[in-house]
């Protein structure tokens, strides 16, 4: 058993009387891609900021890279990379200068950061924009630059807070590709996200957070098995005509939405055939695999938590 890179026991964070994180236990092991999944305000970012040693914990225990953030903050930060939720690039510097200046804060020599910047620009597909200012770059480019910047110190652990929020599909896929490569090269990743597809793509293991607590933990597959069914049958009706009663016993769980019924079942096709046999006539129907989204909504409910 390897020593965990991050180890939290009963970790809490309060801002005044508001408890953002209410006692969580987490272990992240070397080489893992670990995810925090949760809605806005679930406590993901507060947790990330504590792990990145930029925010002191309120209570509980926390060790990062085997050290105590309160005592060894700078030494820990020297070995981790951080991609914050909002880009905080220096928009008045060029792309290259952003990397070089940032690298210098890690005590790296000028020659080293110069060479490193070239390598990272290549990695982030920004070599052509190297000497442009940051300001006019697209959102996806800025995000890639922030990720490149977080790698300037060759971190053992990379923290990414909602890395793809607000990006278009192409930019997201490019970023996922880069993150996958990092994972392949042995970098440990911790990712927060509220995108289920992102969590399924990137994470080996994840926790679902809700209201500052961890409500579930496991691999994406495990979570789906545990909290949902293998398949979901969606039956669409004209609004107001959906009636769950005739199909109630065809699935483990039936959910009623304004224009459709969701039937959680191991075999969607069988359930559909049974529904037809009972004379249920939906406008359209769809059988799909269960996703983390189903797990997530099951665990945290459909109401907006803001």
């Amino acid at each position: 058993m390897t020593t965990p890179l991050v180890e939290a026991r009963g970790l809490t964070k309060s801002f005044g009387s508001f408890e953002a994180v209410r006692g969580i236990d987490v272990e992240v092991h070397p080489g893992e891609a670990f995810g925090f999944l949760g809605a806005n305000g679930a406590g993901k970012s507060s947790t990330m900021r504590m792990v990145s040693c930029t925010s002191p914990r309120t209570g509980g225990e926390l060790r990062v890279l085997g050290m105590d953030p309160d005592r060894d903050g700078p030494r820990i930060r020297a070995r981790i990379g951080v991609v914050p939720q909002l880009d905080n690039l220096d928009t008045e510097l060029t792309v290259r200068q952003n990397l070089e200046v940032y690298g210098r804060y890690f005590g790296l020599s000028r020659a080293h950061v110069r060479a490193k910047a070239v390598e990272l620009l290549e990695f982030a597909q920004l070599a052509e924009r190297a000497d442009d200012e940051v300001e006019p770059l697209s959102g996806g480019m800025k995000r890639r630059l922030t990720i490149a910047r977080s790698l300037v110190n060759d971190p053992d652990l990379l923290l990414l807070d909602e890395p793809t929020t607000g990006l278009d599909p192409q930019a997201r896929h490019l970023l996922w590709d880069r993150l996958f490569r990092l994972k392949q090269s042995g970098v440990t990743l911790i990712i927060t996200t509220h995108y289920m597809d992102e969590a399924e793509q990137l994470c080996d293991r994840l926790v679902v957070m809700d209201g500052g607590r961890i409500v579930a933990e496991g691999s994406p597959g495990e979570l789906i098995r545990r909290y949902s069914t293998r398949e979901v049958l969606e039956l669409r009706f004209p609004p107001g005509e959906q009636d769950p009663e005739p199909v109630r016993d065809l699935a483990e769980r039936v959910e009623v939405l304004p224009d459709r019924l969701l039937l959680y079942t191991a075999d969607g096709d069988a359930a559909l055939a049974a529904a037809h046999a009972r004379g249920v006539r939906p406008v359209s129907s769809l059988v799909r695999r269960s996703t983390l989204e189903d797990v997530f909504l099951r665990l945290t409910g459909r109401t907006l938590v803001d």
Binding site: S52, T54, R75, R77, N88, Y105, F106
Partner: peptide
């Protein structure tokens, strides 16, 4: 927010 970027370093 450049300072927020800097405090993530040592």
């Amino acid at each position: 927010k450049t300072y927020l970027g800097v405090v993530a370093t040592p």
